[in-house]
Write a protein that binds this DNA or RNA. Structure first.
Lengths: 129, 129
DNA sequence: TCTTGACTTAGCGTTAACTCCAGATGTTAT
DNA sequence: ATAACATCTGGAGTTAACGCTAAGTCAAGA
C-alpha cells in the first residue's frame, strides 16, 4: 500500500506517518525501487497499534522504546512486557481518575437542571405523593 | 492564601497558577494592598476544579469559555450547562475508547506471559484435569 | 517525450500549554 | 530600617507533536 492509502485507511496524514517512522514510533517501512514507501500488512498493524495506543495517551517515548526493543529480537521480550505492564497500570489509574471526573460532571450538570427547570421538581414531587 | 500556599496545596507551580489566571482558566484572584495575590476559598475551588478537569483532558479552551460565562452571571446558565454536557459526552466517549485499549493491553500482556512462562501453562493444565 | 501528480527528504513554522527569566516591588523577621 | 525572601509583570523560551514548503524524483498516460 502507498502512503496515501494508509493515510486514508487509518485517518492519519502522510506527514504524520512519515514523522512516526522518523522518530521510530513504527519500524522502518519497505520501499519500492523508486524509494517510495510500500506498506505491508505488518507495517499497517504497527500503524494501527500506534494510533490506538497514542489515542489512549500512551507516551510516544514508551512506544518508541517498545518498537526499538521489538526490533532487537526475542531477547527483549521481558523488557517489552514490562513496558506494557507499566503503561497498562498507568492507563488504569488514569481511567479511574477520569471516571471520577465524569461522575463529577454528571453531578454538576444535574445541579444545573435542578436550578433551571424547577417545574420538574414540582412535577416529581406530585408524582411521588 | 498566598500563591505559594496554593501552589503547594494543589501541586501546581506558581507560574502555572499565574498563567491560568492570565488566560482566564480561573477568574481573577483578589490582591493584597501591595498587589500580591490572596486566594480566597472560592479562588481555591476554581483552582481545584480546573486542575481536575484539565487532568481528565478537557480542553483549556472549553474551560476558559465556561469561566467567562460564569462571570457574566445567571443569564448564561444554559450555555454553561451545554458546555458541561458536551464535555461530559466527549469524555464518556474517550473513556470507552481507553477502556478498549486497556483491554487490548491486558490481552497483549497475557500473550507475553504465555510465551515467556510456558511452565505455568503446564501447571494450569495439570490443575484442570 | 512530456506532462501530471504522487512521492521523496530536509528543515523551518505552528500551536498548546506551560516554564523560565529579569528587574521591580511587596512582605517579614530581626 | 534593613536584610532576606516572596511575589509581581511582561515577555521570551521550551517541548511535544505535528504541519507546511521547497526542491527535486519517479511512474504512468497522451
Amino acid at each position: 500500500m502507498t502512503i496515501a492509502e494508509v493515510s486514508k485507511k487509518y485517518d492519519i496524514t502522510a506527514d504524520t506517518l512519515r514523522y512516526y517512522e522518523r522518530i521510530g514510533l513504527i519500524p522502518a517501512v519497505n520501499r519500492t525501487q523508486g524509494g517510495n514507501r510500500n506498506y505491508t500488512e505488518e507495517d499497517c498493524k504497527w500503524v494501527e497499534f500506534s494510533k490506538c495506543m497514542r489515542g489512549a495517551g500512551l507516551p510516544v517515548e514508551a512506544l518508541i522504546e517498545y518498537v526499538s526493543l521489538f526490533q532487537q529480537g526475542d531477547a527483549t521480550k521481558d523488557a517489552r512486557k514490562q513496558i506494557l505492564i507499566e503503561q497498562r497500570d498507568q492507563l488504569a489509574d488514569k481511567l479511574t481518575d477520569m471516571q471520577k471526573t465524569l461522575e463529577r460532571l454528571h453531578t454538576k450538570i444535574k445541579g444545573y437542571e435542578e436550578i433551571i427547570v424547577p417545574v420538574e421538581q414540582n412535577l416529581k414531587k406530585l408524582g411521588d405523593s
